[in-house]
Design a protein around this nucleic acid. Structure first.
Length: 557
RNA sequence: GCGCUCGUAGCUCAGUGGAUAGAGUAUUGGCCUCCGAAGCCAAGGGUCGCUGGUUCGAUUCCAGCCGGGCGCGCCA
């Protein structure tokens, strides 16, 4: 018998189904938590699903299923309701058992092994080193890191990857921008390059370059500025290292760590681009026209064919993109998940088309994409567009300085990725009831405070008599704790970390409600122990959920 | 124009082929001689954009329309 009530109920229904309708024994059995407490702890719509194939009234089918249902000590009541729902009420022991699980598993409560150690790579941020990280990158960092954590907790072997272009046209523009600053030019001056970056940070780079400073980005060797204004190559190398280092500092402040920094230039230097082009040509899916080499992406769902190699001999961006994903496949990642802004959605079809055309047996849906919408930052009722540093957009650094890392991370993962995001600075700053970060953290700190005042040993709580927990608040809290692993599973499979944020808000609400309704530190020692055990389990679950989102769980605040 | 996407309470947003569509905020009214009031309880607030279709059942799936966002380059 499974210790998890939900799978246990599914087992019971399955065996009843085999008796009542052997022909339909493959019907999927769905067990859900009803929204209303009066509908029991779990409900199944199995009878309604069977209604058509059995050509019978759902309520009659439900009757037969219940008659054939094996007895179970975990179930105290079954009921047919509504159009044919079967509602189950669990025994008190089955409900409170989760507390023992949480206390025993501790920081691992919520982890599962469903991923079987399969390798998955999540690529996110992937900002080219041409400027500071902006709010959109922040959303990606928060989303990607949380998703990576969710997959880790689901038992996958996760790689967090940052891909960037260190040698293309944009980098050349960066070098030219710095050089122009070194020559004393400013944006708008005669002679200021057309495609130049206009932000103030370009001046900072120029100043450090002249001063002969050194920088050491996380993924590369230390670079010392030559100070030679004429040496564009030296300027480029220094500027790239400088900005990579700046991005590293921001990511560190954001508490996001990458396992791999992948350079686009390596795809060329290691022959991966040439290899991919050769495979595409060999596939017969290419053709020459107007001096360029094209790929028939329209055969794979694209609305028109795309140029691979321009008439000047250089490749369009999507060729290295395809080569990069071929490399991911070859590195053994059966799953690759890319978190990108929705303004890149047109690349999805193209990259997948290229991967089909290379004929290496890569699945059609490879890689998977999580596209997110843009972020609008509001302050004082107005949209904030200007950053002193970047010149035209709000940076991750700005946000962290304004409201702190926890609030930024929690806010940025608390919406569906494809929603347009309004980040209200005033709301994130408010240290009161309208700030969901503090609401969740407060519940955690409050529990810590109670446990401190009690002063007993936390280990002893595992011995508590859980049968003393009988109030609706307490049993509802237990059900919420049991939902944690489902919340993680759903959030991972739907690419929806915001589910965890909502789960945490609800769990905190459940705790606050209980706390106000009942006293934890009562005189009755056994009752006190049992309540503290529940509180401890809530604390642990809050902490685990906050960890998934990269938010701290303070013991006091 | 074409493609993708979104449209749910005054505002910011969840959610679902199923039972009375939820939360926060805002508004109104209560709760600290007691574990943290950064908290709790309660009330009011809805044509789930519109119109059709599929279904026993649609806010959810499909089509069309209206409205917002994004994309539509031999840029990335």
């Amino acid at each position: 018998m499974s210790s998890d009530p939900k799978t246990h109920l599914a087992d019971l229904l399955r065996s009843a189904l085999n008796v009542v309708a052997p022909d339909a024994s493959s019907t999927e059995i769905l067990i859900e938590r009803p929204k209303q407490a009066s509908h029991g702890d779990f409900a199944s719509n199995l009878a309604m699903q069977l209604a058509r194939s059995l050509k019978a009234n759902p309520r009659e089918i439900a009757q037969k299923l219940l008659a054939a249902l094996p007895a179970s000590s975990l179930v105290t009541k079954t009921e047919i309701a509504g159009a044919g729902f079967i509602n189950f009420t669990l025994s008190a022991a089955a409900r409170t058992g989760v507390i023992s699980d949480v206390l025993a598993l501790g920081r691992d409560f919520g982890r599962s092994t469903g991923g079987n150690g399969n390798k998955v790579v999540l690529e996110f941020v992937s900002a080219n080193p041409t400027g500071p990280l902006h709010v959109g990158h922040g959303r990606q960092a928060a989303l990607g890191d949380a998703l990576a954590a969710l997959f880790d907790w689901q038992g996958y072997e996760v790689t967090r990857e940052f891909y960037y272009n260190d040698a293309g046209v944009q980098i050349q523009n960066l070098a030219l921008s710095v050089q122009a600053r070194l020559q004393g030019l400013k944006p708008g001056d005669a002679g200021w390059p057309e495609a130049a970056y206009n932000g103030e940070y370009i001046q900072d780079i120029a100043t450090d370059f002249l001063a002969g400073k050194s920088v050491q980005p996380a993924d590369g060797a230390s670079v010392t500025a030559s100070g030679d204004i004429a040496d564009l190559d030296a300027i480029r190398q220094f500027a790239v290292a400088y900005l990579r280092n700046e991005q590293d500092i921001d990511l560190q402040k954001f508490d996001v760590k990458f396992d791999v920094f992948y350079l686009e230039s390596s795809l060329y230097s290691e022959g991966k681009v040439d290899d991919t082009v050769r495979r595409l040509i060999d596939s017969g899916k290419t053709f020459e026209s107007e001096g360029a080499l094209w790929l028939r992406t329209s055969e794979y769902g694209d609305d028109k064919d795309r140029v691979m190699r321009k008439s000047d001999g250089s490749y369009t961006y999507f060729v290295p993109d395809v080569a990069y994903h071929v490399a991911k496949w070859q590195r053994g990642f059966k799953r690759a998940i890319n978190i990108q802004g929705s303004d890149h959605h047109s690349t999805v079809t193209r990259v997948r088309a290229g991967l089909q055309a290379v004929g290496m047996g890569i699945p059609q849906g490879y890689p998977e994409y999580v596209l997110h919408n843009m972020v609008k930052v509001m302050r004082g009722g107005e949209e904030v567009k200007i950053s002193k540093r970047a010149g035209s957009y709000v940076t991750v650094r700005d946000l962290i300085e304004w409201v702190g890392r926890d609030a930024v991370r929690f806010f940025l993962v608390s919406r569906r990725p494809d929603s347009e995001f309004v980040f209200d600075i005033d709301l994130a700053l408010s240290k009161s009831e309208d700030n969901p970060v503090y609401y969740v953290q407060y519940a955690h700190a409050r529990i810590c405070s109670v446990l401190r005042q009690w002063g007993g040993s936390l280990e002893s709580l595992a011995e508590a008599d859980l049968s003393l927990l009988t109030s609706p608040h307490e049993l509802a809290l237990c059900a919420q704790l049991r939902d944690f692993s489902v919340a993680i599973e759903d959030a991972a499979s739907d690419y929806a970390p915001h589910g965890i944020a909502f789960y945490l808000k609800e769990l905190a609400a459940g705790f606050h409600g209980w706390y106000n309704a009942e006293r934890l530190l009562v005189d009755d020692v056994a009752l006190k122990q049992s309540r503290l055990a529940l509180a401890m389990a809530v604390r642990q679950t809050l902490a685990n959920g906050l960890t998934l989102l990269g938010v701290s769980a303070p013991e006091s605040m």
